[in-house]
Design a protein around this nucleic acid. Sequence first.
DNA 1: CAGTGGTCTAGACCACACT
DNA 2: GTGTGGTCTAGACCACTGC
Lengths: 268, 268
Amino acid sequence: MTAPNANTASQSPPTGVSTPDANAGLSAPAFSPLYQQIKAQILQSLQNGEWQPGDVIPSEFDLAARFGVSQGTVRKAIDELAADNLLVRKQGKGTFVATHAEQHVQYRFLRLQPDIGTIQSEGPAERHIIWCRRVRATAEIAKLLGLRTAEPLIQVRRVLRFAGVPTICEDIWLPAGPFKGLSVEQLSSHPGAMYRLFESSFGVRMVRAEERIKATTPDPETASLLDVSEQTPLLSVERIAYTYNNAPMELRRALYRTDTHHYKNELN
Amino acid sequence: MTAPNANTASQSPPTGVSTPDANAGLSAPAFSPLYQQIKAQILQSLQNGEWQPGDVIPSEFDLAARFGVSQGTVRKAIDELAADNLLVRKQGKGTFVATHAEQHVQYRFLRLQPDIGTIQSEGPAERHIIWCRRVRATAEIAKLLGLRTAEPLIQVRRVLRFAGVPTICEDIWLPAGPFKGLSVEQLSSHPGAMYRLFESSFGVRMVRAEERIKATTPDPETASLLDVSEQTPLLSVERIAYTYNNAPMELRRALYRTDTHHYKNELN
DNA sequence: CAGTGGTCTAGACCACACT
DNA sequence: GTGTGGTCTAGACCACTGC
């Protein structure tokens, strides 16, 4: 029962891995290390909701028994998932599913920082929802979100203020299906950041994102919302956020004022 | 000589690590895993030039013998250094000191991409050095580079063209000491990217960098160099590049045209 | 105290590159 | 074939958490 890899009478370690026996003749050059397969299985359990954000997952030894491998192999799989910010290890306590809720970083994907002073010493941002309505995907937006043209979307426009100054104005597009029922009330009343709401109310956890940045000037409406002139150069930040299976689930187009803030990026 | 951790007569594995004996009484809570110490020693050999960029370093077993630890411990140290892009592992061949020269990525820290089309299908950039002269550090620049005001610097101004279009105009400040002798001829004639020259001719290897991005408009001179109007919004990118010991060694202030290109960032 | 993740070791075997 | 990094195992002990 507990030793699926048992294969020899001697006490040599299980050969495992590349299924050397079944590969007689010409076989696909596919070679996947055991820990990658374990990683994929753990990912599967995350996607299908077996373990919810914030939960503890089974211990390394439990998982090793469950998958019929050694603890070290499970460890390597978890190491990679932790490096991807999908799991969080806590010595003495266990390994947890990463969550936007308990993350001490308030804005996971926001790279805008005040020019001087300690980070976020300015306190939490004020969030003002301008409106939230159902729209249909343009060809361009559909392509970015991996949908078909004219599929229903929810579009949210909001403004973020730091220390009372309107600094960010953004449009957010979400596929209507997974986010059915999203309302202005929900958005306004929810205390935390937006990704927290997505996670707790819609079971959608954003895992990574890509941003494309340009410099531009605002249209009249946005200029008014940000309290700047139409000639003010602003950062245009287009973000696509992805959930577990690398599926795009959100498109944001934001304009950032950079008179008191800057976009910070670390290059390695 | 070769077994600094030898400590017991029995064949139990060396206890090592936390020096449990010397820690009687109240001691600093410092605890450094063995592999971190190995990592530091390898880093030391990189800094003092024992292994040059492009070189193979000794095999994991050789290093294990040299440091008196097991191969697995050396492996973990190298894993982290490889994750930091300081070393590059090549299965079957060895572990190499990372270099800007052989890196297939031409511009290690440049995040600007053409809006459409395959990445860098536009061919290599044309580099035009505008000038290169000795200056003295302003208080602001000195602070950013960790120097004192009025220390001698070399300042380079250049323009990069993609597909014939001037797209980037940047000023580069370098401490005069480490870069003694840097000349326009050297900069112009050197075939590759700038960091390659720094590495091969001055022994300075840039390891990581930070960028601060704002939106702005160009001054008249820069507008002319980039062939745009003074009202054109541009990305202002300030980069500080660091060498091994986390010491800042270069400051760049660049303006990017974003009419045909965008700054791309991956968020994890 | 028991349970968890974190470190370290020793040894086996696999995949890849060079000669 | 030899040597390199890459994977896997088994077992020991350390550090941290909470009962």
